[in-house]
Write a protein that binds this DNA or RNA. Sequence first.
DNA 1: TGGGGTATTATCACC
DNA 2: GGTGATCCATACCCCA
Length: 516
Amino acid sequence: MIPRGITVSLPATSLFFPPLPSTKPLHPLTPPHPKKKKSQKALSLRLSLMASKTLTEYERKRLENIKRNDEMIASLMLQRKAADLSSSIKRLKPQIRPLKRHSPEKNNKTPVVIRRSLRARGIPPDAAAKGSPPPPSPPAPPPPSPAKSPSLTIREASSNAPGKDRRLIETVARMCENAPLSPPKRMSSTDGPLDLRSLKLEPEHVARIISGRIMAVQFFPFVDRRVVAVGGKFGNVSFWDVDCGLDGGNDADDDGVYLYGPHTSPVSGISIQPFSLSKVLTSSYDGFIRLMDVEKETFNMLYSGDDAIYSLSQRPLETNVYFGEGQGGLKIWDERAGKVLSSYSLHEKRINTIDFSSCNANLMATSSTDGTACIWDLRKISKHRPGSLRIHQHEKAVHSAYFSPSGSCLATTSIDNRIGILSGDNFMDVSMIRHDNQTGRWLSSFRAIWGWDDSHVFVGNMKRAVDVISTVKKTTTAMESPLMTAIPCRFAAHPYRHGTLASTTSGGQIYMWTST
DNA sequence: TGGGGTATTATCACC
DNA sequence: GGTGATCCATACCCCA
């Protein structure tokens, strides 16, 4: 039985090509053209519990972080009191450093339509379920003008009503308290396979939360809450707390959407580490990497360069930042030292994605407009002769290369209308799947992401659907909904809630599919 | 061979 | 429902 609001195209079409013989030697190989708060009581309880067993690296890092956060909060309480005191002074004299606000003209022309739930707007869900698109929300103020100032407070970057930011800050703080001491668990065989037909799109899970094209999307790794972060074309970053209604006491204006403008150019990447939930990293074509620290209430600059940053990632259990800069460059930013640790030229053209294997954090996958997806062993990578472990050649630009949840497979997406599934020893078994990836100029390129196990990848469909490719059955199935009125381009899978999938469009919408 | 020009594509605001 | 504007991607063609 197919749930309401979803149409599944059956029978599925087998579109797999036979595995291709690899034409590239395994190793060593050089790329084609290398130039390229918690109370003290609770904390001590947690520590004593942890002392009773051997700590894993992950747990150790989490405890360190909690400890650091507590110290920080203690100091912040003092700072807050000082700030309260000085605020009365600020009202009497002008700001010493006024925030530069120079929003692009087009931003004023295209005001963001802040999401209002159907319930809040007094519209019965049935109306939307019948296929009629949600009525346009009243125009909201234009997105915040991004500032080039290295130091920026959350309030300065915010375009939310005064006081609204506090809700997001409090939510994140609460989630940090309940953060698990284990990393996201991938689906085990005992969980059983996810029934894709159980995925459905409800009217309250459709929202337009940003103006313009969504370039990047990421879930906060919260166990009990669905909060998604998106980065937009105008340098804006928006958060959607889908479960904000669970808190109770919220007024009708609390739509769970929080909008900020930390960048001046498109946001290319978002990274949130599970052991450091209050820190959100964003990268942009403006050459900046910003760190949104929810506890410090800042949006400070971490790194700035002359070249555009096209991709951003972090290794599991590590605070260093890996980012793709300029034409094929990869840099590693040492967060503790506050400087660039290493710089490599890995590709001929821009690096579109960087990803790390969950089973071996030394394995890094990159995808590039130069037509290749490469797997690198970070232990063997050198500045002068960066040699990749594996090169997967496409005919045209490659827009993503992501490791599967187990780390044993890699999915690549290229505008040559193929999706590659690499598996087996040294990723030498290759299946090429035909898929229309011609998004053109006005849409973000498609990037196939893995679901919650190694059996499915999700990718956009030019007919306003989500294509689900089974790597086992070698079939492609389209998930459709009348609520989906635009083409989904970029996706994120909730790390803890299996079956919760965020799909985003070039019109600023999010469609959040959920499993019942 | 490299740089410049152009075609392609979807979405949204406005009429 | 039609139309114009968008313009931060890419491939391809042509010409110097």
